[in-house]
Amino acid sequence: MARLNPGSLAIAQEIISRYPVARSALIPLLHLAQEQDGHVTEEAMAHIAELVGVTPAEVMGTCSFYEMLKREPVGEYMVNICNGISCHLLGSSELIHHAEATLGVRPGGTTDDGKITLEAVECIAACTEAPCLQVNYRYRNRVSTADFDQLVDDLRAGTAGVAPHGKLAKVRQHIGDERRAGVAVPDGQAQPAWLARNPTDAESGS
């Protein structure tokens, strides 16, 4: 629970290498820290500041802007019930009330067993599947109260098939060195070579 561990650090270095300016890697690295610890610790922010060459205050400024980046511990599962307009029209408020009653917490709160943090979130782009929710950013569509209860049971039993909070994509981008085109640094670049192509040359080459 602290700075990035060696495994995370190696991934962090690869992520940084994809950007012309290291600071661009800030948000991906904050996700990485959250994946490691379940939330973004101050130690991780300070470490990331070192990695991308900014101050910890600047990392905090960025980190605190984005809702997904949690600076305090949260439950193993974030259950985010959509409260966007489309879901609202189809009963999200009732679902949220049900969730509050079932879990015994208000939105933003975490159950006593530390398993579930409930949030009422803005539109998550599943509007035709209202009311919907996400568990650690995995969708559940057209959720009834019964569906919700089942979900809670599954989460508590560990049978929901959802990775702990912090883990997003199960596949990471990886660019092998031989396939890498190379970052385009902001200064000192010339016009890309292919722009000089004309159709005749190209056709003859294809």
């Binding site: 101050e42 922010m45 205050a57 905090m60 400024g61 605190s64």
Partner: peptide, 22 residues
């Protein structure tokens, strides 16, 4: 060149602050 105070949080909760203990 000492960006040790920054905007933190968002919207009408935005505040100026330092990094904790820094």
């Amino acid at each position: 060149g000492d960006p040790l105070i920054t905007f933190q949080d968002r919207g009408d909760q935005t505040q100026v602050n330092t990094f904790p203990d820094l």
